[in-house]
Design a protein around this nucleic acid. Structure first.
Length: 521
RNA sequence: CGGGGUGUAGCGUAGCCCGGUAUCGCGCUUGGUUUGGGACCAAGAGAUCGUCAGUUCGAAUCUGGCCACCCCGACCA
């Protein structure tokens, strides 16, 4: 590790102890010393990275986050890619209200139980000046007859509409998605991973048959997995949630689980088969071909700005963020190296040609000709922000007809002929996309183990955190006991898990397949 | 909601124990020298010390209330 960069990371915490005690990336070194408590320091490292890479910051509003322009542009890239995949599979976008009348939420029993503890509630609609002149107060006269919940998710509002929209089998299926914000009043928040308000997409579909709804649920899970792997370069495990972990109101919850670099799991997306639960709660029935009334079958599925957290924690290294080219707001940055105005204008001419050609191919290119920062500063800055490719051009290159091309993922530099650059950059970007995916895949493989006893299970959690495949008897009680004792949860029952007879690591009862355990975010 | 901590310039902080209107670094502005891995020198601007009250000739500092935020738990995408 480069100790200068370590020092850079460290300076803010240095004053407390008089020495650097900071951790960067994967090396877990404290100025050459081993660190024992990984997760706490990783957590701090993550938050600092989010701030330093200019992605987001804490808002003065409790538990909320300000997504800064650079961070938001990554989110936009994600939105674009996902939105296209949704539309390619027949979905359309719509928008439903932010407010959920309290009575709506109460209609589905397990749903209300699941969300009741984390709702923000609107009780009044007016303020007035305080009688004692101390500011404004809530006008007690302006109390709402029925309180409004700020949506923690939109199943209830949407199914309330579906009731009005659906009469016949000819009205089905309804395949709707909405991009919006939701509020869940969490006790503790963390940038991108858990914030009081977050941005997401939620799909809500209604179908005439269970079979069709199940197919939709699985299709969307596949889309999420494809997005994670192809765009984010994050390998994920597709699986089904246990009873204890499933969505309130769902019959089955499917999810994709990713492994972060500190060995903790992150749920990156969920797709729920709702059965007829919401149709029952909102009395949504349709007349089938035979003229008989039937309840509608539903699904819902979502991914949120939490994906940003997954992206950051999957690829980042000691020098900052590493972005997969497919989601990078800037594919290549061009840094000129110059002394005089004259030199800069000569370089600019060459840059113009390269940048224009690359942009024509659909790449986003930034030419950073600021004269108040030195090249070294800019190099470090774009590395921190994860820009995949950097092109440097200086007087030396003008003379030789070359440029220096550096890739963010491996930090390798090569000198290229100027006329080759436009042809080589696309290849390089593809190589980077593939490389960081393979790297993440290897990391996951190296940090996934099978265990066959509870002792080995606990040992693995302490010594080599990661995914653990183990047998489980399928009961809620065992799941809860393991969670209580080890903080590890069943992330999912992997869809591709092979049949394998074994004994539950906790109870010793028989089990027919291994499930995926980990400590999770 | 329990346990711990912090509030001083845009950011990070010193000063607080032992009262006398505020330290240093980053950043910012101007001028000069620099520029192939986080430049340097000089000059400058920028703070009702979280808030309200009390003690005092005098409060960033002592006392009390309030507020906000952070960290560790319970909760959770």
């Amino acid at each position: 590790m480069n100790s200068d960069i370590l020092y850079q990371f460290s300076e803010q915490r240095e004053c407390h102890t008089g020495r650097a005690e900071y951790i960067c990336g994967l090396n877990w070194l404290e100025m050459g010393k081993e660190i024992t408590n990984r997760s706490e320091d990783y957590s701090q490292w993550y938050i600092d990275l989010v701030k330093k890479a200019d992605l987001a910051e804490n808002s003065d509003v409790r538990g909320c986050m300000i997504i800064k322009p650079y961070g938001y542009s990554i989110w936009e890239k994600m939105q674009q890619a996902l939105d296209k995949m949704f539309k390619d599979t027949g979905h359309t976008n719509a928008y439903f209200p932010l407010f959920v009348p309290k009575s709506f939420l109460a209609k589905e029993a397990s749903h209300v139980e699941g969300f009741a503890k984390e709702c923000a509630i609107v009780t009044h609609y007016r303020l007035k000046n305080a009688p004692d002149g101390s500011g404004v107060i809530v006008d007690p006269e302006a109390k709402l007859e029925e309180e409004l919940i700020i949506r923690p998710t939109s199943e209830t509002v949407i199914w309330n509409s579906y009731k009005k929209w659906i009469q016949s089998y000819r009205d089905l299926p309804i395949l709707i998605n909405q991009w919006c914000n939701v509020v869940r009043w969490e006790m503790r928040t963390r940038l991108f991973l858990r914030t009081s308000e977050f941005l997401w997409q939620e799909g809500h579909t209604a179908h005439a048959t269970a079979d069709e709804a199940v197919k939709e649920t699985r299709q969307m899970l596949d889309i999420y997995a494809e997005f994670a792997e192809n765009f984010m370069a994050v390998p994920v495990i597709k699986g089904k949630k246990s009873e204890g972990e499933k969505f309130p109101g769902a019959v089955d919850t499917y999810c994709i689980e990713a492994l972060m670099q500190d060995g903790k799991a992150l749920q990156a997306g969920t797709s729920h088969f709702l059965g007829q639960n919401f149709a029952k709660a909102f009395d949504v029935q349709f007349t089938n071909k035979e003229g008989k009334l039937e309840l509608v079958w539903g699904t819902s599925w979502g991914v949120s700005t939490r994906l940003m957290g997954a992206l950051i924690m999957s690829h980042s290294d000691d020098d900052g963020l590493v972005l997969p080219p497919k989601l990078a707001p800037i594919h290549a940055v061009i840094v000129p190296i110059f002394r005089t105005e004259e030199e800069l204008s000569k370089i600019s001419e060459k840059v113009e040609v390269i940048a224009t050609a690359l942009r024509k191919l659909g790449y986003s290119v930034k030419f950073d000709n600021r004269d108040n920062y030195k090249p070294g500063f800019k190099f470090a800055e774009y590395e921190m922000r994860g820009v995949p490719v950097r092109i440097a051009i200086g007087p030396r290159d003008l003379e030789n007809g070359t440029v220096e091309v550096a890739r963010r993922d491996t930090k390798e530099k090569q000198v290229m002929k100027m006329e080759d650059v436009v042809g080589e950059i696309p290849k390089l970007l593809d190589a980077i996309q593939l490389n960081i995916y393979q790297k993440a895949q290897k990391f996951r493989a190296d940090n996934t183990i099978k265990v066959d006893s509870y002792d080995a299970f606990k040992k693995a959690l302490d010594e080599k955190p990661g995914f653990i495949l183990a047998h489980w008897d399928g009961t809620k009680e065992t799941e809860a006991a393991i969670k209580e004792e080890t903080k590890a949860t069943i992330r999912c029952i992997p869809l591709d898990a092979p049949e394998e007879n074994g004994k539950c690591i906790y109870s010793g009862k028989p089990s027919s397949r291994r499930v995926l355990f980990a400590r999770a975010y």
